[in-house]
């Protein structure tokens, strides 16, 4: 589904990603872990199409297409969804309006009929229940005045409505209490299927108790320095990132 080949990226001349290689197939859950500043969020944002980064080398193939040539909106229409680490507040735009417009833009792109008001309402009702989001928040402006937890749940709610093929969660677990964390995990586990894939970017192992990854990758200084199964996450939790850092440094000195 997704193949990242030797990806190098920089921002304002500063190199952030230094040769990422990653392959993701449908039905898989991948966790990308790593210390702060290792390039996790950069990778997530580049996948969604953020234009601030300069791709200096490498390519990304998504479903046989060159992802880097696609606009952010076309990526979304092709099924990529990024749950933002810091969801943006947009005063004056209601959550409902945003979601309905987004859903219909995506459907239109895929040659499907637009949903009517009734269908949309029942869809919304179902999905708000899933993430235990207060329906009253929907008529309010996007993320405006939402608590940290509400913002994160709103991201998962949007994901549930848009049903992406590739969902990328950028530190969705950061700052959440255990109840909110479980809700987020429930949302992800519900949409997960053999036809889609999930990438969980996280700093902590905690979320991975609830969303069980098939693969865990450790990102450090712009490269994936270690990959393994879910047990790698436990190992990291136990030994901390210093363990990986040391290994990597050894690698460099040797």
């Amino acid at each position: 589904m997704l193949e990242i080949k030797n990806l190098h990226a920089s921002i304002d001349g500063k190199k952030i990603l230094k040769g990422i290689n990653l392959k993701i197939n449908t039905g898989e859950v991948h966790a990308i872990m790593g210390p702060n500043g290792s390039g996790k969020s950069t990778l997530a944002q580049i996948l969604a199409g953020r234009e601030d980064y300069e791709i200096t080398k490498g390519e990304i193939i998504y479903e046989g297409k060159n992802l880097l040539e696609m606009s952010p909106e076309d990526r979304a229409r092709e099924g990529i969804f990024l749950a933002f680490q810091y969801p943006v507040e947009i005063p004056g735009v209601s959550n409902t309006n945003l979601l309905k417009t987004a859903l219909n833009e995506i459907r239109k792109y895929r040659g499907l009929e637009e949903v009517d008001a009734m269908e949309f309402l029942s869809l919304i009702k179902e999905k708000t229940k899933l993430v235990e989001l207060d329906q009253q928040l929907l008529s309010r402006s996007v993320n405006e005045g939402f608590s940290g937890g509400e913002k994160k749940r709103n991201e998962i709610f949007q994901m549930a409505v848009l049903e992406p093929k590739l969902a990328i969660l950028d530190e969705t677990d950061s700052g959440l209490d255990i109840d909110a964390l479980k809700i987020v995990a429930k949302g992800v586990n519900t949409i997960k299927s053999k036809d889609n894939a999930v990438v969980v970017v996280t700093h902590y192992q905690r979320l991975l108790n609830y969303i069980i990854p098939d693969f865990v990758h450790v990102l450090y200084q712009g490269q994936i320095v270690k990959s393994g199964g879910k047990e790698l996450a436990f190992e990291l939790e136990e030994k901390g990132y210093d363990w990986v850092k040391e290994e990597k440094n050894e690698l460099v000195t040797n």
């Binding site: 979304a76 004056g92 979601l99 987004a102 792109y109």
Partner: peptide
């Protein structure tokens, strides 16, 4: 127009024109 908000809207599938229009509406709404 807020760049972050524009990217957020586009990342949800809204085209450039539509995203701009929504933000302009929002700006004028009060």
């Amino acid at each position: 127009l807020n760049k972050d908000a524009l990217f957020y809207l586009k990342s949800r599938g809204l085209g450039n024109e539509a995203a701009r229009a929504i933000l302009i509406h929002a700006f004028a709404s009060d």
